[in-house]
Amino acid sequence: MQPDHPLNDLLRKDRIPHIWCSGCGIGTIFSACLNAIKASEIDLSKVVMVSGIGCSGRGAGYINVDSFHTTHGRAIPFATGMKLANPSLHVIVFSGDGDLFAIGGNHFIHAARRNIELTVICVNNLNYGMTGGQAAATTPNRAKTTTTPLGNPESPFNLPLLAYASGATYVARWTMLHTRDLTNSIKEALQKKGFSFIEALCPCPVNYGRRNKLRPLDVFKAYQQKSIVKNGANPIEIDADSDKGIIVGKFIDTERPTYTEMYNKIYRSKG
């Protein structure tokens, strides 16, 4: 008899196959996340996944733990309320670049500043996939999307730099090809207290790739040829430019008191 897929117990099997397109990297990053949860040996009944809206926002719907699919951009404040009301929960926010950094950008920087104990995983596919491939806050300059038909006049965020500047205590970036490093980073982040942020780059073959003449295997070739692992690199110097090079690695791993720790110390120590 054929043995079960090793992640079957963490999947809502009745919802598989998922909605992600053929060749979309979200599934791989999601799989890395599930493997990391397993490897962390955290009590699964205390693991919660919160997602926003968008392709990656569907992540919460496929994990067989308590999972919340919230509104567009609001996964982080929802998760903040949940974590503060029950600090014994391990709250993972799994969402996309548009959700976390355009509509939800304000929430992201404030949760990082407060050092709320959340593990935020951002699937960065450089565009809004769910709505058909519009420009995002991460779309490279001059890239073509349905709302930048002649090329993107804007410049993208450097997400690890934004996370670092906002106060995140763990910051890493990997591509979906670095799946073992990615899994390891997520595991480390889960076992660490404080706000942690992991950016995972992946292709969106149907919407972004098609308009920019990037087949997924071409993207992978670029990941293989242009990725430079620089653990501990200064986030100000980490390009994610397929011409110059894609700097990946664990950039920040530091400690500072979390919101809950400070709140307990200042407000609850008298009792």
């Binding site: 919340f68 509104t71 982080i76 404040p77 309320g81 009301a85 929960l89």
Partner: peptide, 15 residues
């Protein structure tokens, strides 16, 4: 926006 989201999250955490 965040305040409203936070109280929903807290409610699902049992508070």
């Amino acid at each position: 926006i965040a305040a409203m989201a936070a109280i929903l999250g807290a409610s699902w955490a049992g508070a």
